[in-house]
């Protein structure tokens, strides 16, 4: 690969902020964020499903916004761009409330869609701390699941919402939202 002429096809180091950690990763112009995460950084929690933008299995957060890693060229990310993946969701050994709820309520079976579901749901709860079931379904409308029939997933997101610590509304008492 390194024999390619200097036409921009060779890899250049790019610094990203992945799950809060600055990492320098070599990136070729034609490589997607999915390839860079899974193969460059060994973060295989982000799944490759259709790889064409038709399933949501590779959903990650770029600056907090759910996007498809399979359709994002890594070279287009800014220096120090914030990328959050499933590997950063748990707090050490303590699962995130969304993970707890998915496990407790059967929000997953085979698990392949789960990283994309969880990251998308995380972004929803950051934007909408108390979503309705309709808002959950709309937010997850780009994540296919062939196992669960979606019911337990929506239920799990709704159940997790009160346990996800978010910035308290202005004027609200401070410790209103405790983790389980």
């Amino acid at each position: 690969m390194e024999h390619a002429p200097a036409t921009g096809r060779t890899r250049a180091l790019r610094r990203l902020l992945v799950n809060g950690e600055p990492v320098d990763v070599p990136v070729a112009p034609h490589e997607t964020l999915l390839e860079v995460l899974r193969e460059g950084l060994g973060l295989t929690g982000t799944k490759h499903g259709c790889e064409l933008g038709e399933c949501g299995a590779c959903a990650v957060l770029v600056d907090g916004v759910p996007v498809l890693a399979c359709l994002t060229l890594a070279v287009e990310l800014a220096e120090h761009q914030r990328v959050d993946t499933i590997e950063g969701l748990a707090d050490g050994a303590r699962l995130h409330p969304l993970q707890e709820a998915f496990a407790a309520l059967g929000g997953l079976q085979c698990g392949y869609c789960t990283p994309g579901m969880l990251m998308t749901a995380k972004a929803l709860l950051a934007r909408e701390p108390r979503p309705t079931a309709a808002q959950v379904r709309e937010a997850l409308a780009g994540n296919l699941c062939r196992c669960t029939g979606y019911g337990p997933i929506v239920e799990a997101v709704l159940a997790a919402a009160p346990h996800v610590a978010g910035p308290a509304p202005l004027g609200a008492p401070a410790a209103a939202e405790a983790r389980p």
Binding site: G8, P29, H30, T32, E35, E39, H48, L73, V75
Partner: peptide, 12 residues
């Protein structure tokens, strides 16, 4: 993994 073919990339 489905991959894009190599290309030059410019960002004006």
């Amino acid at each position: 993994m489905m991959r894009c073919p190599p290309f030059r990339y410019l960002a004006p």
